[in-house]
């Protein structure tokens, strides 16, 4: 199968062009500004590494950046585990209602962020659907406070929000997977587990990687969900950057954090690509290993 490289090229190619045109110019401006400093309401073009020193020496910003990356990686992993069987099922076991199922899967994307978030509050809240139900069944006698406004709640809603991206990426991979390969493997003596580990996983790795990168980037960039669902611990590096840009008019420091985050993200992605590239799975995903 030409799958690996062609698929990645087809998905990443146009995205790359759009990124260059739409994102690189503003990023360049941010990079320049990140070396300046702010004096009340003026940006003083007085280049120094002061802002970066401030970012790197601040425990809070380091923590927030690490938290963003961890959160992105965690949600990517959880969505992968959930989406894998779902995508398999839709691609390989469903015939008639496939389009309907895929559309249903995308419903979360049709509704606005806020609608989704407030719906989740109704479910997870202190007097929400879930707590009421658990109390009714007698499983608990006091509401579980941490269902909402907690890291757990943030995780649940982020998984819900970004699951479709993972499923779509994987679904495409499963659709292009030739069923005869499974027969061939069985013919050569492979059991179910072996087929899963040595055939299905490597051959769907392109979709897994594409989905994971999408989810990772989207989760790192989502500050509304943690803010409205995560409670007092819902701060994100993005909201911190937004505060600096919007409220404090400290574009230089905000830019420096943004760039540090960007470099860290690229670092994580590069590390994943390098590590995966050394395995047979990765060589399926990225062409020749």
């Amino acid at each position: 199968m030409d799958g690996g490289r062609t698929f990645l090229a087809a998905t990443v190619g146009p995205v790359l062009v759009a990124l260059i045109v739409l994102c690189l110019a503003p990023l360049g401006v941010l990079l320049v500004v990140s070396f300046f400093r702010v004096d009340f309401v003026s940006i003083v073009p007085d280049p120094s590494l002061h802002n970066y020193a401030q970012v790197l020496s601040s425990g809070s910003y380091r923590y927030l950046i690490a938290k963003a990356l961890m959160s992105g990686a965690t949600i990517a992993a959880i969505t992968a585990v959930i989406a894998y069987p779902v995508a398999f099922f839709i691609a390989k076991r469903i015939r008639e209602v496939k389009a309907a199922l895929l559309t249903a899967l995308l419903i979360p994307l049709y509704t606005g962020d806020l609608v989704r978030i407030f719906a989740w509050r109704l479910i997870l809240g202190r007097e929400g659907v879930l707590n009421s139900f658990l109390i009714w069944t007698g499983a608990i006698d006091r509401p579980i406070e941490t269902l909402l406004f907690s890291p757990t709640a943030t995780t649940i809603v982020l998984v819900y929000n970004y699951l479709p991206f993972m499923v779509l990426g994987l679904w495409l991979s499963f659709e292009t997977l030739d069923d005869h390969l499974f027969e061939a493997a069985a013919d050569l003596g492979a059991g179910r587990t072996t087929i899963l580990l040595r055939l299905v996983l490597p051959l769907t790795a392109p979709g897994l990687v594409a989905g994971a990168l999408m989810v990772f980037a989207l989760v790192v960039g989502d500050f509304i969900t943690p803010q409205l669902i995560g409670g007092a611990s819902g701060v994100t590096v993005i909201s911190a950057i937004a505060d600096l840009f919007g409220a404090a008019f400290d574009w230089p420091l905000g830019s420096a954090i943004a760039w540090t985050l960007l470099v860290a993200m690229v670092g994580v992605v590069a590390a994943v690509v390098v590590i995966l590239g050394r395995t047979p799975w990765g060589s399926a995903a990225f062409g020749r290993g």
Binding site: S58, G59, S60, V235, A240
Partner: peptide, 8 residues
């Protein structure tokens, strides 16, 4: 910055 440190 301090406000964000508190939240973080």
């Amino acid at each position: 910055t301090m406000w964000n440190e508190v939240k973080a």
